[in-house]
Amino acid sequence: MVRYGMVIDLNRCIGCRSCAVICKIHNSLPPGTWWHRVETVGSKEHQTPSGDYPNLTELYLPVPCMHCDNPPCVKVCPVGATWKREDGVVLVDFERCIGCRYCMTACPYGVRQFNWEDKDKAVEKGFKAAGFEGEYVEGYRHGYPIDHRTKDGRLVYTPKRPRGVVEKCTFCVQYIDKGLKPACVRGCPGNARIFGDLDDPNSEISKVLRDGAHTRLLEDLGTEPKVFYLLPMKRAERGEVRYSPELEVKL
């Protein structure tokens, strides 16, 4: 059985938010909704340093759904709308969700979002905030155009995005079920992401996790996230300039 997971390499992450944007476009998310966020740790403004001179840092942290192996959101769902699939992906059945939002309270990562309004309404509000006078041409909406259901028929992706349900990152279930990688992985210009089967010892993701120091968010909560972060290397560990012994003496 496969067990999907994702590695995000924080050395490689350049904070460009391409993952967040491609997620938004592919998953038909209107203004106001982000299933994936990238922020600069400790800074109010993205890509502005934290700390005091000369110890300034910018650490970018992308946060999708963690697809926990022990997902608190699943336990609290009174109707079984959110569940962990056999491949480890945590999904929401849009047709079963009653919008009680218990799962949002339960999720320690804040990645779940409630769909308060129709997509059109959200677009309208976004356009108003942007000061646009017009609309998209002829009712245009972006996003993967076709509904996706699991093998047992549960609706887990739809470009229509029904109101009154909770939604979140699905590891792009509409793609991974076709053998494709999630959009954020395909769309990362920093090559910072690896997606694959954690149970296959020969998969790239397993190898990387074996070799490199990594962490997970809020590990002490016991949620067992399947999104892993490769830790930023200490400066001393990289960029080591190798001098010839003769020159080193001189230095």
């Binding site: 460009c16 391409s18 491609i22 476009i25």
Partner: peptide
């Protein structure tokens, strides 16, 4: 892959 957030949202 070459490409970024701006290219990904060019449909806007």
């Amino acid at each position: 892959p070459r490409g970024c957030l701006r290219g990904q949202s060019m449909m806007n």
